[in-house]
């Protein structure tokens, strides 16, 4: 070990910038960190690739033959459903990764820095966006391989991408709340499942809602995942749109607006209750 001088180095001065600049800068630093985690962790990469493929193939070939989707082929019907399901499950990584950070010493390190409060959560959510873009591309590609034949225009594809990202953002913020609330890593893992699984099944993801019992059907047709799925499906394969796009966007924006203050409250509260 060298005995180089500690305080005799040229003094380091923090840069002086506005709070907004630091929020963006800190969030960028934390996003790079979380995105690096995707690349460096084999299980994240695997699940990113395997889950969409598995769900697509199972639904298309095991269930697909027995489901009547009318004039639309099942491959065309299914794609929007699998896409939204995968986006929602992908957000579970925000819950898990945030829970891991909170349990380990590193959150104390971040909290003892003069950094912006929201940056840690924003970093995980940015990683979610990256993960979901990758998953989304894989789903569309595998979709083509199993018979998905969209007739969307370039503009419609842009709508699809935009609404998917907005939806991802909303689910990620919700997942951040879960990540701050759960007491253990195991809880983080199943909390996402318990929430997302029923939501995707009681929706128009895999089957038309018409055949469901009345109460289920009422729920299925008025929850945000169905709106999002219907909107994407309409753009991709020309099923009826109705108000789906607006409703989906409204839901997502509402969820984000509600989740952000809750997340920052929980993040601060965390410190005051833990030893």
């Amino acid at each position: 070990m060298t005995t180089s001088e500690y305080l005799l180095v040229a003094p380091v001065q923090p840069e002086r910038r506005s709070n907004l600049y630091w929020l963006i800068s800190d969030s960028w630093v934390m996003s790079k960190r979380s995105i690096m985690h995707i690349v460096r962790s084999a299980d994240q990469v695997l699940s990113l690739i395997l889950f969409p493929i598995m769900f697509m193939l199972l639904n298309r070939y095991v269930l697909g033959g027995a489901i009547d989707t009318g004039e639309v082929s099942y491959a065309n019907y299914l794609l929007a459903g699998i896409l939204v399901q995968t986006l929602a499950f992908g957000a579970n990584y925000t819950t898990i990764n945030l829970a891991v950070d909170m349990k380990e010493g590193i959150v104390d390190r971040f909290r003892s820095l003069p950094m912006s409060d929201g940056a840690l959560v924003i970093g995980h959510i940015a990683a979610d966006m990256v993960r979901n873009v990758i998953s989304g591309i894989i789903i569309v590609l595998i979709g083509f391989a199993v018979g998905f034949r969209p007739n969307a225009s370039a503009i419609e594809w842009l709508y699809v991408i935009g609404l998917s990202m907005l939806f991802t953002l909303a689910i990620s913020w919700l997942s951040a709340i879960l990540g701050l609330v759960v007491k253990s890593l195991e809880a983080a893992q199943w909390a996402g499942f318990v929430l997302i699984f029923p939501l995707t099944f009681i929706s128009s993801a895999f089957v038309p809602t018409e055949t469901m019992p009345r109460v289920l059907r009422a729920f299925a047709e008025n929850q945000p995942m169905t709106h999002t799925i219907n909107a994407l499906r309409s753009w991709l394969v020309d099923t009826p749109m109705g108000d789906a796009a607006w409703l989906s966007a409204a839901w997502s924006i509402a969820l984000i607006v509600i989740s952000i203050p809750i997340t920052s409250y929980l993040f601060r509260r965390y410190s005051t209750t833990s030893q």
């Binding site: 800190d26 630093v29 010493g105 590193i106 390190r109």
Partner: peptide, 22 residues
């Protein structure tokens, strides 16, 4: 140890330095 296992030692330090606003 409050270090990030997936990052390298150098990346950990760079991350902290940026968060300290150097």
């Amino acid at each position: 140890a409050a270090v990030d296992g997936y990052l390298t030692g150098e990346e950990n330090l760079m991350m902290l330095a940026r968060l300290y606003r150097l």
